[in-house]
Design a protein around this nucleic acid. Structure first.
Length: 671
RNA sequence: GCGCCCGUAGCUCAGUUGGAUAGAGCGCUUGCCUCCGGAGCAAGAGGCCGCAAGUUCGAAUCUUGCCGGGCGUACCA
């Protein structure tokens, strides 16, 4: 809504400057004046123009402002400060429009034609050998939120959660069961309780046993080989473990409102020979080469220059000494096995539909909301359903920033194969890790070395079993919010209380993980994560609950304020009955802020930064709370003003609620 | 060594493609329920935006150098 208005104004300014001064403004920037009194939109282009004309900016601005004419939707234009042109919008018209559209989806309604690209978004990707921890939650919440943002703007998105079921980590747990605990498949199946928690501890035990003996490390590589070969007891055990753990992860993520469309398995990439085909391609194009000497003798490696422009990089002019430059990344080991990156290149090719091969699929799990997530299979007898996956035009991989080197290699691989366009449309959606604050480690009873205690944070380690498990954290949050609900609403029945508590717990956790920008390390701290006050999800939820209470109550008590009569009133805003002057700065500020949902959603998508939207929603909730405290709406005596305040309340409620939904947060009736 | 990221209030963090007086939460101090729910609101204290140069009408933001921290740079992922 606002976007199209701004575009019109911009176009007119550009045209005006062009025809009057023969100057084309390179980039017409629009910003917001620091105060409402100064206007709604600020245009600083006169500084640039003044420089070109070699005249004082303020003088130029005055000239432009007085000669440019009028704009639809604009009340007046003013020159301010050293040479800004500030635009004041017609408040009534703007308000009316916002009211009519505020219940619609924030972006799609006014979006220009969408790209019609199919987007593949990969996230979560937890090794299926242990319980999920907070770091995994950050990944999944970021990915899920971004998927919601894309979908809301009309994009078609397929969410994939890659399962590394033939990796070393699964092998480690198999080693644990087979050799440390002497358990066969049957015994493993009989393990009671949370299986992912059991494996969490076992994985830590196995890891420490590796440090003690070399022979157990041999067990690992033998086991890995057996798993890759398949059709043996070990592979069967590994299969059971990884599938069972995947189900645990799906359950955990579902608690957070996160679901997937497809679970592609690494084993299927191997069994269906995706890799063989990709390998042949890579060899043919010379993207990789066979090392005949040196450290990496017998390996196939890919040379990658600095940054993400690898093969295209011109040979570096070496200065002076002959330093041994980039050795490249090993794609195929000397024993002939493929590294993870190699498989990832094949997977990425498949995502773009460049492999000319496909998986088979079968339904793996049906969510309570009816959605089915499929899993790949190599057995075409297992194929069921008509599901089609892959073949996207754009790919986002949500993977933490520690893997950016590997992600660059995957993209460089595409480039080396001549798939420039796909390489350009591959995005590593990277984010920094979640670490533990030293205080958090103390809370967990973890012994820290003196050196660690001095650090700002301690890295989570699955191998050491060092971390906060996702389910534990959700449980703690749930218990805490249930207690709060109990204190406030003892009249509700237990099921209802639990339902409310769940939305609050999810809200607190999702908001906590989203409020940090992606490249900020989160030093996890229980006190902050468990807070429901201040800049938190529950704070924003609460604002919506309050708004709903007002709207509900006024309908019960005052028949002259029905939705219809408010709607009728809004028609008269901006006319003699309720002129623009009655929309005071205080209210206008709120209206204008509420209209910023769509721009913020767009910006979040453009920059792949959900934190932008998250912060905006908090600011909007804050503004609402201020409004709430300063005005008694229900007892307002002026009937017109009362309706105006109600209409404003509805707008704010709608914008907040829609924004929260995009973050995966729902609003309870009470809280 | 090389690559990427970070350094903003006591703490945790925002700060749109350079823009007007650098913001928020927490913590601290002091207030606010004759109430549409206090998971709230108001006020106050608290800043050489790591340091130094440069680019320009204008720099927390861009460039370079330095200082400090993190993560990569595995025949792990």
């Amino acid at each position: 809504m606002l976007a199209s208005l701004i575009e019109e104004i911009k176009a007119k300014f550009i045209q005006h400057v062009q025809s009057h001064y023969g100057y084309s403004v390179s980039q017409l920037i629009v910003e917001q004046p620091p105060k409402v009194e100064l206007g709604d939109l600020a245009f600083p282009f006169c500084f640039e123009l003044a420089k070109y004309l070699k005249r004082p900016p303020r003088q130029v601005a005055t000239e432009v402002a007085s000669s440019v004419g009028t704009f639809p939707g604009v009340a007046k234009i003013q020159v301010a400060g050293p040479g800004y042109i500030n635009v004041f919008l017609k408040r009534g018209d703007f308000f009316k429009q916002l009211f009519q559209t505020s219940h619609q989806r924030p972006v799609s309604a006014t979006s220009p034609a969408q790209t019609k690209e199919k987007i593949i978004l990969e996230h979560t990707n937890i090794n299926p050998n242990k319980a999920a921890h907070i770091g995994h939650l950050r990944n999944a919440v970021l990915g899920d939120t971004f998927a919601r943002l894309l979908r809301c703007s009309g994009e078609s998105v397929e969410v994939q959660n890659y399962i590394d079921d033939t990796g070393v980590q699964v092998a480690d747990v198999v080693v644990g069961f087979k050799y440390l605990e002497k358990k066969n498949l049957q015994a493993v199946q009989a393990i009671p309780g949370k299986f992912d928690y059991y494996c969490w501890d076992l994985y830590a035990k196995v890891s420490s046993s590796y440090e003690q003996s070399l022979e157990s490390q041999e067990l690992r590589s033998d086991t890995l080989k057996l798993i890759e070969e398949g059709h043996n007891d070990t592979a069967e055990l590994a299969h059971y473990i990884s599938h069972k753990i995947v189900q645990c992860h799906l359950d955990t993520m579902w608690r957070m409102g996160i679901q997937y469309d497809l679970l592609p398995k690494e084993s299927d990439i191997l069994h269906l020979k995706f890799w063989h085909y990709a390998f042949a391609l890579l060899k043919k194009t010379g993207a990789i080469h066979f090392e005949t000497s040196g450290k990496n003798q017998g390996c196939w490696i890919m040379r990658v220059g600095e940054k993400n422009s690898p093969a295209t990089k011109e040979p570096v002019a070496e200065s002076g000494s002959e330093r041994d430059f980039e050795e490249g990344k090993i794609i195929v080991r000397s024993n002939g096995t493929v590294t993870y990156v190699g498989k990832d290149i094949a997977y990425q090719l498949w995502k773009f539909g460049l492999l000319g091969m496909d998986f088979f699929y079968h339904p793996f799990h049906r969510y309570p909301n009816g959605h089915t997530v499929y899993m790949t299979t190599s057995d075409n007898n297992q194929q069921s359903g008509q599901a089609q996956f892959g073949g996207g035009q754009r790919v986002y991989n949500v993977i933490d920033s520690r893997q950016s080197y590997l992600q660059n290699i995957v993209i460089a691989g595409l480039r080396a194969l001549g798939f420039q366009e796909q390489a350009d449309k591959s995005t590593h959606f990277s984010y920094e890790m979640v670490a533990l604050s030293p205080r958090c480690c103390e809370d967990l009873g973890i012994q820290l070395s003196e050196a660690d205690r001095q650090r700002p944070y301690v890295e989570v380690s699955g191998r050491k079993g060092l971390g906060v498990k996702a389910d534990d954290l959700i449980d703690i949050l749930l218990e805490k919010s249930l207690q709060e609900v109990r204190n406030r609403h003892s009249d509700l029945d237990e099921t209802e209380m639990k339902r409310i508590a769940t939305t609050i717990a999810v809200s607190a956790l999702r908001y906590f993980l989203l409020r940090y920008t992606r490249n900020s390390v989160i030093a996890f701290d229980f006190k902050e994560a468990l807070s429901f006050e201040g800049e938190t999800g529950p704070y924003v939820q609460y604002a919506v609950v309050r708004a709903n209470n007002i709207l509900k109550k006024v309908q019960e008590e005052d028949s002259s304020c029905s939705p219809d009569s408010v709607q009728l009133f809004v028609q008269t805003v901006g006319t003699g009955a309720f002129p623009d002057e009655r929309i005071e700065d205080e209210f206008w500020k709120l209206i204008y802020l509420a209209s910023q949902l769509e721009p913020n959603v767009r910006l979040s998508i453009q920059t792949s930064e959900p934190a932008t939207l998250t912060k905006y929603l908090f600011a909007l909730a804050q503004a609402f709370n201020l409004f709430y405290h300063r005005h008694r709406i229900i007892s307002e005596v002026d009937p017109l003003k009362k309706r105006f305040l109600l209409a404003l309340t509805r707008i704010l409620r709608d914008q907040l609620e829609q924004g929260l939904n995009l973050l995966g947060i729902t609003v309870p009736a009470k809280m």
